[in-house]
Design a protein around this nucleic acid. Structure first.
Lengths: 230, 230
DNA sequence: GGTTTGTATATTGTCGACATTTAGGCAAAG
DNA sequence: CTTTGCCTAAATGTCGACAATATACAAACC
């Protein structure tokens, strides 16, 4: 009943919105990495628009913590270095923990079945070793858990935290994913949720994130790129 | 050594930043309430600037969840109604809980002394019944706890959540503050922190927020203002 | 009388241009 | 050879204006 594709887009989405999403996409796929500068004129021309909507998009990205605006100097993709990386993982651990506690009592047989489907899909892709596919799938799995938890505000904050994780040096963010340990923790999370035990589910999700951080830091940091001074 | 006031401001802060902070201030002090429309030309003239920086400020406020942009219709102060209000309090309870757990082991005698000072100040102002003074003091107290917890990212997310609380109908957000029950919980929080017990501190802070929500909902909702349709 | 159509006004979305500032190169002075 | 100063180019901050959309009101029609 709703075409929703052709003109509803132009009726609801402004150019600034599209630019914002496009840039977020570039960050998520690694085309833009921490420290990169975003030239307003370049991006305006790339999208065939003027600078005004680009600037609005960049302002929104700044508020989301993805870029850093330096007056009269330019916009740079934020870089998350060590003190902050740990902070971010601790925060995400707490958010995931909350999601586990909320979701557990809501798990129905249908939800349990869906979660086991996710496990199979994750295991299948992990077996191929194709990180380019596993990476977004893993994020989608965790995002789905948050959505199922039923607190939209929590999901919004969680997504903001997850977006920032892409600002870690990509080489690192990927490492340790899809490992047997990570798979095992996924199964433990689903198992706890299936028993509808809030405390166990919360603990499993929290621990999974903290272990993910441990797997991250034990991998050698990638060599630094250009580092805009200051 | 640093004047930091006169020209450092103009060197680092753009007009859009100032406008953004100004509007946030209007929301915090209640001059702007949920549902109000923000006319771009009006605010541009009020601050003596053009629409461009105003629009950038509004984009940032949208990303922070404080306003809602409707294409070709305008910008409106977001309204937080019942399902979302509960979500927000649950989230804040979790963030405060995390802060309590982080802060407890860091409490030194100096910090304990500072916290007791806060208690006295809060009790003093609460005794006067002057909510206009108690209200920001209470927020500053909780903010201070977050800062002392030492996780800057957590503090940032917490502040974003707190900012949104101002979008609850102000009549409600104030009610229940400074009550004996609230004061008692403050003392329990500081007591737990002083013993450096992470679990007890986390629980006290969590419960304080959840009780605050309970005190909120048991007060009659203020009559609605204009409600922009859709 | 109620509904619809048409028009006028106001507001937003976007654009192009100007002023200001920064970054870098080059030359002159030390 | 280093440093200082100036100058040029590029990029950002801000502005005013135009086009497109939505809202309000009035007229016309059933």
């Amino acid at each position: 009943m709703e075409p929703l594709t052709p003109l509803k887009i132009l009726q609801t989405r402004s150019v600034a919105d599209l630019v914002r999403e496009e840039i977020i996409g570039l960050i998520k796929q690694g085309a833009l990495v921490a420290g990169d500068k975003l030239n307003e004129v370049d991006y305006a021309q790339r999208f065939g628009v003027s600078r005004a909507p680009v600037r609005e998009a960049l302002r929104a990205l700044e508020a989301a913590g993805l870029v850093r605006l330096e007056k009269n100097r330019g916009v740079f993709v934020r870089e998350i270095a060590e003190p902050e990386a740990r902070e971010l993982y601790e925060l995400r651990a707490t958010l995931d923990e909350m999601a586990g506690r909320l979701l557990a009592p809501k798990v129905t047989p249908a939800i349990a079945a869906e979660l086991h489907e996710w496990l199979e899909r994750l295991a299948g892709v992990a077996a191929t070793g194709d990180m380019a596919r596993y990476f977004p799938l893993n994020i989608a799995f965790h995002d789905r858990l948050l959505v199922l938890a039923g607190n939209a505000t929590l999901t919004e904050f969680y997504r903001q935290a997850m977006d920032r994780m892409h600002l870690l040096r990509r080489r690192n963010f990927n490492e340790g994913l899809g490992t047997p340990a990570s798979q095992k923790e996924h199964r433990e999370i689903v198992a706890a949720l299936t028993t509808r035990d809030p405390a166990a589910s919360a603990a499993a999700m929290r621990q999974h994130v903290l272990n993910g951080y441990a797997r991250l830091v034990q991998h050698p940091p990638a060599a630094g790129r250009r580092a805009p001074r200051r």
